[in-house]
Structures are given as structure tokens and as C-alpha cells.
Design a protein around this nucleic acid. Sequence first.
DNA 1: AGATTTATGTCAATATAGTTGACGTAAATA
DNA 2: TATTTACGTCAACTATATTGACATAAATCT
Lengths: 179, 179
Amino acid sequence: MVEPGSAAAWRRAAAEAAAATSDEDALELVELFFFAYRDFVGDADRLLGKYGFGRAHHRVLHFVNRRPGLTIAALLDILRITKQSLNRVLKQLLDADFVEARPGVVDRRQRLLYPTPQGAKLARDLAALQSARFLKVMDGLPPAARGAASEFLFAMIDSDERERVRAHLACAKAAGGAP
Amino acid sequence: MVEPGSAAAWRRAAAEAAAATSDEDALELVELFFFAYRDFVGDADRLLGKYGFGRAHHRVLHFVNRRPGLTIAALLDILRITKQSLNRVLKQLLDADFVEARPGVVDRRQRLLYPTPQGAKLARDLAALQSARFLKVMDGLPPAARGAASEFLFAMIDSDERERVRAHLACAKAAGGAP
DNA sequence: AGATTTATGTCAATATAGTTGACGTAAATA
DNA sequence: TATTTACGTCAACTATATTGACATAAATCT
């Protein structure tokens, strides 16, 4: 493919082969990301269907379980939806006794959200499904590549959002949410 | 953390530190994947809004542009939605002259879908946005980790779907779709 | 103490993206 | 000729989100 005598062409090809990610590679990554996410959420969708819940319920239940005592405002901030949209889903989870709301102790206007025992169980089951996919993938990856996957995902997040995500992870870890 | 004298505990800790992915790590990956995808699609959403289109239009336009001459059936197979759902968005794309349908030459029942010039341009602009995120991420990653990201995403796809995805990518590459 | 802000709830209308089910039509195929 | 295939379409429905307006109780400011 490299024409003999063309130093520029050779240099270009060498540079590409060495490290750079081409536009075509990037497009492939875009599509792989789409397909990977499609299958990733598919696992949980099937289980949620048995309870008459959807993805919206999953997200709420997940974050409530992961950070018990979460306020409405904090949840809205994570999910990036309006309170009206959240309220519909949250009310169903409260009615079905998967989530419980207690008035805040320091600020009684707040409603602190906690998973009920059955809520925590469903959250764990859903997380187990999705974690299982990751565990299997990581297990099949060469050890050196494992840290890369996590680094890669973190880098995919908006740069001005990374600190908040990092804080959320630290907070969840400290709370010992659904381990 | 490692109690002296406990060989079993030491071996466990060493094994974990060496390679294994813990349940807590897996949970973190689940959340990172959620946040990464949220921001990834956010880029395109903003541009689509200017045209009055949504994510559904994006997906159709993307795959039509990537594999010109795609049939309805093939598109349904990729998107995993019903033809009624596809038809609504597809009709809008046809009406707005972003996609064109030509009767199949070998089988005249088929409608082969092609992007119009302005459809191809929008598809390219959208792809450029999302590719840019990947290019930036890959550029910031150590060279050794770059291949890992692609491998990782591919491994995240359902095992019984990987062949079809591989075929799609090969097909798109051969067609030279929107490079 | 009274005024204002904050955290949250709620009603109503609307949009987008998807579903199931039923029926129609033209072209390919057995 | 009969059947299957590829696609279109009408209708009713669900899920998830939006905007806008208004209500309430608790915290906070002056």
C-alpha cells in the first residue's frame, strides 16, 4: 500500500499504524458503543418487565439504593429530568413499597429516599445482572486492558461532569450502597 | 489490612490486587457506563433539536448513511423496533428530503434507502460530533489502552449478536459509508 | 415578626418514541 | 394459481419526557 519513494506517504502510514485513531475507527467505536449499550440495558429491561416497571423506575431505584437517604433534588440532578417526570415514577415506587421517603432530620422540607427491603433486593438483582456482564467482560480481557476500560468510560464523560461523578462514586462507596 | 500470619488472606488480597474485578468495581463500571452514554448522546441531541429531529431520526439517518441501499427489513433488524414505529420517523425523513427510497432492482418489493445530499451532510455532522468525543478520549489514553477500549465495547455486546455486528461493520466499511 | 426563598407536590396540556393488532397491496415464488 | 414475502397504514394504547402554572410548608433573611 505504501508507494516506494514517497517518504511523506510512508510517514503518514507509519504514524497511523503506530497509535492514532482514524475517523473510520472512531465511527466504528460510535456504533460499538450503541450496540453495547443496547444489549447492556436489555438485560435489566427483561427483569423490570416482570414487575411492571420500566427503565425510569430502574434508574430511580438504582440511585436510591446506591445512596440511601438521597434527596429529591440530588436525584433530579443525577437523572437530569424534571421533577414532574420523576414524581410519576417515584410515586409508583413508593406506592408499590419499593422506596420509602422519610422527612429530613436537619431540614424537614426534604424527603430522604430509602429503599425498602424488597426495593433493595430488586436493585441488587438488577445490579447483579449488569455487573455480571462487566465481570464476564473484564474476566475475558487481558489483565493489562482492565484498568483501561474503566479509564476509557470515565474519559467519555463530559469533562465538566467528571468531578460530580467522582463525588457520587465516593459517596456511594462511603455509604456502602448495595455492595 | 493484611493480618500477618494469614496466608489465605494474603493470597486473596494479592489475587484481587493483581487482576480480578470486584463486585464494587463492577457496580462502578455500571454507573460509569450510564453517565458516559448519557453525555455521548447529549452531543447529538443538541444538533438534532435544531432540525426538529430526535434520537429516533438520528439512528435511522445514521444507519442509512452508513450503509446506503439498506432495506427496511435490515434497518428494523438493526434498530429492534416495529415497522410502525420506524415508519413514522422514516416518513418524516423522506418528507424532509433527508432520506430517499428507491425500489430494489433485483426485488422490486424492497425499498432501498439512501441519504440525500443534505441527509448525508447531517449524518456526517452528527457522526463528527460523536467521533470527536472518541478521538479526544483515545488521544488522551495511553497507546496501549486504545485497542482495549474497542475490544471492551465489542465484548459488551451479547455474544450471539457479535457476528451480526461484525458483519454490519464489514459491510459499512466495504460500502465506504460516511468516512 | 414578617417577607422571601427553598424543597417539594400537583394539575394540565403536549411531544416523542415506542407497542400490539388488524388489514391491504404488490411482487416474488412454489 | 396459490401462497408467501416486503412493505404500508389505520387505530388505540403505553411509557417517558416536556413546559407552565400554582400550592404548601419549612427554612432563612431583614
